[in-house]
């Protein structure tokens, strides 16, 4: 394997990491800040992909981005409405929306489970023709995803320091306190989920256009993969201010994709991605718990031994 193909693989992993880091940033907002585990993520990711693809195919590559984000906002709005106003448990609300979105996504793709964009002008090909002749031409995907991620990180860093952002963070921290600050936690939950799902939609839109096709399974397992990246990111930047944490989250997503790419080179079947991400999430969440249980376990062991000795 020569240097060129290694660089190519590296760039691929970086692109994929950046594009999926948008979903990770969405979970950073909903899971880490709002304390809602948004299980509609898979469906919303696919929704962004299908809506973005449909709009691009209709001849509006630039419009595909706001369209996909708006679709994400709508999906987040429904999820939030179910849990704040209709008495549906927050996990269940996500699952219900996720299931419903399957039909919506098939409908958006015109009753097909696959859309091809091989000859479609996408945001990436638009930029490519814009840059044609320059050395950057081949890095169009990387450039678009870098810009998108940078904008979202900057947006989150500013947004989470505003009064509305503070209220959203407090809602995940102590809803009682939000209420006593004369703010309705239902309102902050709705805004938070609308914003986070717009990032998920954007993420799906960019992934679909970068691989020039979208199928109904494009988002399957995204929530676990994103959660794994989020938790890896937490290992890098566990303390510090929000911009640092957001960058850590993006790093987590890139590292996850790089490690995955390396594993593929060592002949790991591609289908293992989802199992690996599940295992990472389990280790990251259960690890600290099991560690805290260790003294108890040791105590039981010594107790048994002393009983046997007696």
């Amino acid at each position: 394997m020569d240097l060129n193909s290694i660089l190519n693989l590296g760039e691929n992993a970086l692109q994929l990491g950046l594009i999926s880091s948008l979903t990770v940033l969405a979970l950073f907002l909903s899971y880490s800040m709002l304390n809602v585990c948004d299980l509609s993520t898979d469906g919303c990711f696919t929704l962004g992909a299908t809506v973005g693809a449909a709009v691009a195919i209709s001849g509006h590559p630039l419009l595909s981005i706001p369209a996909a984000m708006l679709a994400g906002v709508l999906s987040g709005f429904v999820t939030a409405l179910l849990q704040t106003k209709m008495g549906v448990d927050s996990l269940l609300a996500g699952i219900i929306v996720n299931t419903g979105l399957y039909s919506v996504n098939i409908a958006v793709m015109g009753n097909s489970s696959l859309l091809n964009m091989n000859t479609t002008e996408t945001v990436f090909t638009s930029l490519k023709s814009l840059l044609s002749g320059t050395p950057l031409e081949q890095h169009n995907v990387l450039i678009v995803s870098l810009i998108a991620v940078a904008l979202v990180v900057i947006f989150l860093s500013i947004f989470l320091k505003t009064k509305l952002g503070l209220a959203i963070r407090a809602t995940g921290n102590n809803p009682d306190m939000v209420r006593s600050s004369s703010i309705n936690p239902a309102f902050t939950t709705i805004i938070g989920l609308c914003v986070s799902n717009s990032f998920t939609g954007l993420s799906g839109c960019l992934l679909a256009q970068s691989q020039k096709s979208v199928n109904i399974d494009i988002g399957t397992g995204m929530v676990t993969i994103a959660l794994a990246s989020l938790l890896i990111g937490g290992v890098f930047v566990s303390k510090g201010k929000i911009p640092a944490k957001a960058v850590g989250v993006v790093l987590g997503s890139i590292v996850f994709r790089v490690v995955y790419t390396v594993a593929l080179r060592f002949d790991m079947p591609a289908s293992m991605l989802k199992l690996v991400s599940s295992v990472i999430v389990v280790i990251a969440i259960s690890g600290p718990y099991l560690k805290s249980r260790y003294p108890e376990f040791k105590r039981q062991l010594t107790h048994k031994r002393s009983k046997e000795a007696a």
Binding site: K161, K163, L166, N173, N174, M177, S180, S181, I183
Partner: peptide, 28 residues
């Protein structure tokens, strides 16, 4: 004593919410 404030946020941020000054998008 834990019910009245958000533990994961700074003293300053807690006070900012209680003060409730400014618009939704205003900063401290």
């Amino acid at each position: 004593p834990m019910r009245g404030s958000a533990p994961g946020m700074s003293i300053e941020e807690n006070l900012a919410l209680a003060a409730g000054n400014g618009e939704w998008l205003s900063r401290i």
